[in-house]
Amino acid sequence: MRILVTGAAGFIGSTLAHRLLARGDEVLGYDNLNDYYDPALKDARLARLLPQPGFTFVRASLEDRAAMERVFSEFKPQRVVNLAAQAGVRYSLENPHAYIDSNIVGFTNILEACRHNGVEHLVYASSSSVYGANRKLPFAVEDSVDHPVSLYAATKKANELMAHTYSHLFDLPTTGLRFFTVYGPWGRPDMALFLFTRKILAGEPINVFNHGRHTRDFTYIDDIVEGVVRTLDTVPGADPNYDPLQPNPGSSSAPWRVYNIGNHQPVQLLRYIEVLEDCLGRTAEKRLLPMQPGDVPDTEADVEALKRDTGYSPSTPIETGVRNFVEWYRAFYS
């Protein structure tokens, strides 16, 4: 298939592009290579993709409507995976306009382009952050997500609502994936594993928020990408069991779905740090701090819906995933 992957120089996007190319798809990568984190890492990810047959690349932003329309007109993607976004909970407290530009205006451009170009299926990144102030665990797609605690989360909730409108009005099949904490080789420098590894190797203290007591559903990148591919290949239709008198927030009478994509194995942050210390052969100096604004204490994904509909089955324990990351990190920064 011809597949457009936005955010193709990003962590998940670049890994997904490799996977799609390996199975014979033609991939157009789309990314603005912004400096939210070190562009050199994005360049390095992209450099591994550019020589591969079947891969082409356009540097542009989601909010650049003319560039978006040109890509759809010329490449004519059959399916689209929208992973480009302004990411990060904490940064949304400092620079809210970046989130509106990319995650709202940019996503509108994606939806309009898909609508007018006969795209068979749009898969897009949502986030576990949409669960916000919820405390019922595990988080399930049937739960309410009406109480976000960051603007980032609010934009992701908005994406799900916008996609539903297009699915309903224009019969555009859309699937939103609520990513839980993704980690692994080629990961993001603003994420805990990357930050901790760099500081521990440099002999610097690490900031451990909520005194390390909170839990996260850490999910290895290969498991995530496998789930994205399975979702991309499973085009949603109307849910025959949808009841408008008792609506299910995870499905619809339109060709629209949202799924959790996680590991369903929450790990306490202190345990995650222990595993990292074992892999590095060093002990971290921990600076224990209170929870940060916008954070939630715990996350855990109920992935039964994704398993049922696509056969998704995450299998990588954190001991394996963290070791793979440390090996990559030492090789990349040697």
Rank of each mutant, 00 (worst) to 15 (best):
V5T: 02
G7Y: 03
A8E: 15
G10E: 15
G10F: 05
T15F: 10
R19K: 11
A22N: 15
A22E: 14
R23V: 13
G24A: 09
D25A: 13
L28G: 08
G29C: 06
Y30C: 04
D31H: 10
N34C: 11
K42W: 08
D43W: 10
A44H: 14
P51A: 00
F55W: 06
S61E: 06
A67V: 08
P77V: 12
Q78R: 14
Q78W: 09
Q86S: 07
Y91W: 15
Y99L: 03
D101S: 15
N103Q: 06
V105N: 15
G106W: 08
T108S: 13
E112C: 12
A113Y: 13
N117V: 04
H121K: 04
L122T: 00
V123H: 05
Y124H: 03
A125R: 03
S127E: 06
S127M: 06
G132Q: 07
N134L: 11
P138A: 04
V141F: 13
D143K: 12
D143Y: 02
S144R: 14
V145E: 09
V145I: 15
H147C: 11
H147E: 01
Y152T: 01
N159Q: 09
E160G: 04
H164F: 07
S167I: 02
S167T: 02
L169K: 14
T181W: 12
V182C: 04
Y183L: 10
D190M: 12
D190Y: 13
A192K: 07
R198Y: 01
E204A: 07
E204T: 06
N207F: 12
N210H: 13
R213T: 04
I224G: 01
E226K: 15
E226Y: 11
R230V: 09
T231I: 05
T231D: 05
L232S: 03
V235N: 07
P236H: 02
A238F: 09
P240I: 01
P244K: 13
L245Y: 11
Q246C: 05
P249A: 02
S252P: 01
P255D: 06
R257Y: 00
R257A: 13
H264F: 15
Q265R: 13
Q265F: 12
L270H: 14
R271L: 15
E274F: 14
L276Q: 02
C279Y: 03
L280P: 00
T283V: 08
L289S: 02
G294I: 04
D298T: 04
D298V: 00
T299N: 10
E300Y: 07
A301V: 08
V303G: 12
A305Y: 08
T310S: 01
S313V: 13
P314Q: 09
P314T: 02
T316A: 09
P317S: 04
I318T: 08
T320C: 10
G321Q: 02
V322A: 10
R323S: 14
R323G: 07
F325W: 01
F332I: 10
